[in-house]
């Protein structure tokens, strides 16, 4: 319908319509002025890539035009007023909803034998479609599992490497008895600079034996006995009748002489049965 109307107008005015023109609106086109050739009696349509803020359109010669928005404000139809009666040049600033302002320089002709723009289309370059990313949850879980496994393996490898360098273990198996309470120093483990002694207490009496403090000391021939500061722990605090419990004691080994002989004494809590293993080496 519009095209029929336009063709009728063109025939009446005897003007030569220019082919429809396309302009691209992008960052590179900022700062450039769009040229528009219009003529009395011809409607020239400019199609914009986004809605025009029609109320903010300002033209240098507003009385010379009839500007009608169509197509949801994405198109402006420019129609020069016949009453102007002469050719003139003007410009319009057309703000778009995107924030871009299009400056249109307009040449309006009153003479019929001229080229006229009928349709000018402004386009924005197509934006590439966003790539859809689908998440395969099973693959993610598998990947997470692999990463966790890899971390565990690496962690364990580091642990093993350090253990090979730092851990020293030796069976001692020295025993002593005091009032039918048998103390056995079983193993010595050295992790880094820290030493551990593992021992057991067997109660072969008819009275339960309660674990108290653990005293570790060493001596070097010709020197005084020195007591080592320790921390001790037991699997059970009390060894019942004919029962064996296990304990361990840890201490710092940095300052201990290599030729020292050690003694380990386990004191009975509230009692006098203190078995002591003496004279063992680490």
């Amino acid at each position: 319908m519009i095209m029929v109307f336009l063709l009728a107008l063109l025939a009446a005015a005897d003007v030569k319509p220019a082919p429809a023109r396309n302009y691209k609106i992008d960052d590179a086109s900022r700062g450039k002025t769009l040229e528009l050739r219009v003529a009395t009696g011809v409607v020239t349509s400019v199609h914009f890539p986004s809605p025009v803020l029609v109320e903010d359109v300002v033209c240098g010669n507003p009385g010379a035009f009839v500007i009608k928005p169509t197509l949801a404000n994405t198109q402006l139809n420019f129609g020069p007023q016949p009453s102007v009666g002469k050719s003139f040049a003007t410009n319009c600033n057309v703000p778009l909803s995107t924030g871009l302002t299009v400056t249109i320089g307009i040449i309006a002709s009153a003479t019929p034998d001229t080229f006229v723009d009928v349709l000018v289309e402004l386009k924005t370059p197509p934006t590439p479609a966003p790539v859809k990313t689908t998440i395969d949850e099973s693959a993610v879980e598998e990947r997470v599992f692999k990463v966790e496994k890899q971390c565990q393996d690496e962690h364990e490898q580091v642990l093993v490497d350090k253990a090979a360098q730092a851990i020293v273990m030796r069976h001692i198996n020295e025993r002593a008895i005091h009032d039918f309470v048998i103390l056995a120093v079983l193993d010595h483990v050295k992790i880094g600079s820290r030493g551990l002694l593992r021992f057991s207490v067997e109660n072969h009496t008819r009275v339960p034996w309660a674990a108290g403090a653990v005293r570790v000391s060493f001596y070097v021939p010709g020197k005084d006995v020195k007591v080592i500061e320790t921390k001790a722990g037991f699997t059970k605090p009390i060894a019942g009748v004919a029962e064996e419990i296990f304990g361990a004691v840890s201490f710092e080994m940095i300052d201990l002489p290599a030729d020292a002989k050690f003694s380990l004494e386990v004191l009975e809590r509230n009692g006098s049965r203190h078995p002591k293993v003496d004279g063992f080496r680490l």
């Binding site: 900022r30 700062g31 450039k32 002025t33 040229e35 050739r37 050719s87 040049a89 410009n91 302002t101 400056t103 320089g105 040449i107 002709s109 003479t111 001229t114």
Partner: peptide, 15 residues
């Protein structure tokens, strides 16, 4: 017309 068109093409653009 050509004169007007030549004028139009030299309109100072946005700056």
């Amino acid at each position: 017309m050509s004169l007007l068109l030549s004028l139009l093409l030299t309109v100072q653009p946005q700056r």
